[in-house]
Amino acid sequence: MTLKIASWNINSVRARAPIVERLLDEEQPDILCLQETKVMDGIFPGDLFRSRGYVHQLLNGQKMHHGVAILSRVPLADHGKHDWQDNGEARHVGARLPGGLRLENVYIPAGGDVPDREKNPKFGQKLDFVERMTRWSEKLAEPTLIVGDFNIAPLECDVWSHKALLDIVSHTPIEVEALGRLQDAHGWVDLGRRHIPAPERNFTWWSYRAIDWAASDRGRRLDHMWCSPEIAERTRSHRVLESCRGWERPSDHVPLILEIDA
């Protein structure tokens, strides 16, 4: 069975319901993983998804902040939530797919503006979050796909200007090194660069601050899909839907689409 899995930091699922509907109608993914849903579970717009066949819904919401969800047309089993932030924030939800593949959906903290844990506690929390994920990855013994907004652009070609962003949170050496340790802990395969080899263009985020995001084109690759090494050969394609950044009332992130033999 080949599954089409989409991942998208939607930056408020209720505020952007029209473009969520458009994505579902145009792409018809089997599973949609959302980050930054910004809604409590009790008022999540579940009918939007149920009406399109996404009857299996895993929610981990939080009022006005954070929040993740998995919406699926195929059954989801062995549901779980990790508190890698160690403070109760809603940043992870996971499940097992038919066929045994584990799917984990994560929203790593942005980390504030100052890349110094002493001056900026949010930056320290981000690094600690990644460290807890690293310890979890070291013990992982089952085929897993992890997707979401990692809020780190690891390669020089993953940002519009490596030199300009070296001291900017999301591309600092300390974050890149932390993400590298996380990747090494399980031998994670970066599917974004497996299917779109460096240095090919591969941006997933453009700031709202730009008057014209496409003209300034100051993108970063903050969103990722990684898989256990033994299942990398089962991935058929990986796409970045850059055009979605130009949709009406867009998220600052764009969706990723993966096809995998599950």
Rank of each mutant, 00 (worst) to 15 (best):
N9Q: 02
K38L: 03
L76H: 07
V39A: 06
P199S: 10
I211L: 13
L97T: 11
A164Y: 08
H79V: 07
D78V: 00
W8D: 00
G61D: 03
L58R: 06
E21P: 05
V176G: 03
T134P: 05
H195G: 02
V240W: 03
Q62G: 00
E156L: 08
G124T: 03
R245A: 05
W160Y: 12
E248L: 00
F129W: 15
D190G: 14
N105K: 01
Q28L: 11
D167Y: 09
K163V: 14
E200F: 09
A214M: 10
R14W: 01
W206M: 00
W188F: 11
E21G: 06
I257A: 02
W206Q: 01
E233H: 13
S137G: 12
E242K: 08
R22M: 07
W136M: 02
Q57C: 02
V93L: 03
V189T: 09
H238K: 03
H171L: 06
R117K: 14
K139E: 10
R96C: 05
K63R: 13
L48W: 11
P199H: 12
R117C: 11
R52Y: 06
P255K: 12
L191P: 08
M1W: 12
G148P: 04
A164L: 07
H65C: 10
N120Q: 10
W206H: 01
N105F: 05
A69R: 03
H224W: 12
P255T: 05
R91H: 11
E230P: 12
I146K: 07
H66W: 15
L165W: 15
G219H: 09
G112D: 09
A77W: 01
H238A: 07
N105Y: 02
I168V: 14
G67L: 09
E156P: 09
G180I: 08
L145W: 02
R14G: 02
E138A: 11
V68F: 01
D113I: 11
I168Q: 14
D149G: 02
E138H: 12
E177A: 15
G124L: 02
L222S: 09
R96D: 08
G80E: 10
C33S: 04
A214F: 10
L127Q: 11
A110F: 13
N202G: 15
F44R: 04
K119F: 13
F203Y: 11
L48C: 06
T2K: 08
L24R: 11
V114A: 04
N151G: 09
S228V: 03
H162G: 05
E27N: 03
M64N: 15
W206N: 01
T172S: 13
C33K: 08
N60Y: 14
G80K: 10
I211T: 11
R52S: 05
H65E: 12
L241I: 07
P18L: 03
A17S: 05
I10T: 09
H224Y: 03
L3P: 07
A153M: 08
I108A: 04
S237C: 00
N202I: 15
Q62Y: 06
E131H: 14
D128T: 14
T172I: 13
T134Y: 07
M64F: 14
K122T: 05
